[in-house]
Simulated scan of single mutants.
Amino acid sequence: MTSQIRIAGVVKESIVDGPGIRFVVFAQGCPHQCEGCHNPATHDLSGGHLVAIDTIIAEMKKNPLLDGITLSGGEPFLQSAGFSELARCAQAAGYHVMTYTGYTYETLTAKNDQEWLRLLKYTDLLVDGRFEAEQKSLLLKFRGSHNQRIIDVKKSQQKNQLVLSEIS
């Protein structure tokens, strides 16, 4: 069990990073280096700071208005053991979990990495795919470019096929 994760920071209340009011955790470190990334400060693997998972959950519980947690980046799957533990704890506390990744759902599941699969297990909605500047749109809900998808992970796992979320 990983008790700490390396983060760039948090936003304690957001309405643009998933449905409802969300607590957003920005993972530190990203291999994708997408051109036009809105969060390039998260790319450096050694940047940011360590924070205890229990500290994040305790901070969330202070706000009774929160609907969920959003795991953003950087790339949460680079620290999949810690972020899956955070997602598990958040779900156990009754929060909805949304995770952003530059990887595609197909890549995440095909690799058969147990920690990646564990993070998916505790993710309700997944926004997948690299940000592509040439496909950028400010009109998209909860994503930056048209190639990115909002995936209902639970339904996808139950049906053993990709199921897009109705909020996309």
Score class of each variant (00 low, 15 high):
T42W: 06
T123G: 03
L138G: 09
P40L: 13
K136N: 04
H96C: 02
N63S: 10
L119C: 09
E106Q: 13
V97C: 02
C37P: 12
E166A: 14
E13I: 14
Q135F: 08
S14I: 09
E106H: 08
G129Y: 00
N63H: 09
P19R: 10
G73E: 07
G36N: 09
G129T: 01
H32P: 08
H146N: 09
G29H: 10
Y100M: 08
T42L: 07
S84L: 04
L164Q: 09
V10I: 12
A93V: 15
S46E: 15
L65N: 15
I15L: 13
V51E: 11
R118I: 01
G82D: 07
Q158G: 05
V25K: 02
W116T: 03
L119Y: 03
S156Q: 03
G36Y: 12
E115W: 05
V163M: 11
R118V: 00
L140R: 00
N63C: 04
T101E: 09
G94F: 11
H146F: 07
S14M: 04
S84K: 12
L71Y: 03
Y95T: 06
G73N: 02
I53M: 13
L86S: 05
C30Y: 09
S137D: 03
G9D: 11
G9E: 13
Y105D: 05
K159I: 13
E13N: 15
A52I: 02
T70I: 03
I56E: 06
Y95W: 06
Q28A: 10
K12V: 11
Y122M: 00
P64S: 14
Q157K: 06
L66D: 07
F131L: 08
H96G: 00
G144N: 03
I150Y: 02
S80P: 14
P31H: 15
G9W: 04
L120S: 02
Q91F: 02
A52K: 14
A92C: 02
Q135M: 05
G47H: 08
I21C: 07
Q4L: 15
G74A: 07
L65P: 09
P76Q: 08
G20D: 03
I57N: 01
E115A: 10
A52L: 13
L138K: 04
K121P: 00
G48K: 07
Q148I: 04
F23D: 04
M98I: 13
C30M: 10
A41I: 13
E75W: 09
F142I: 01
F23P: 04
E35S: 14
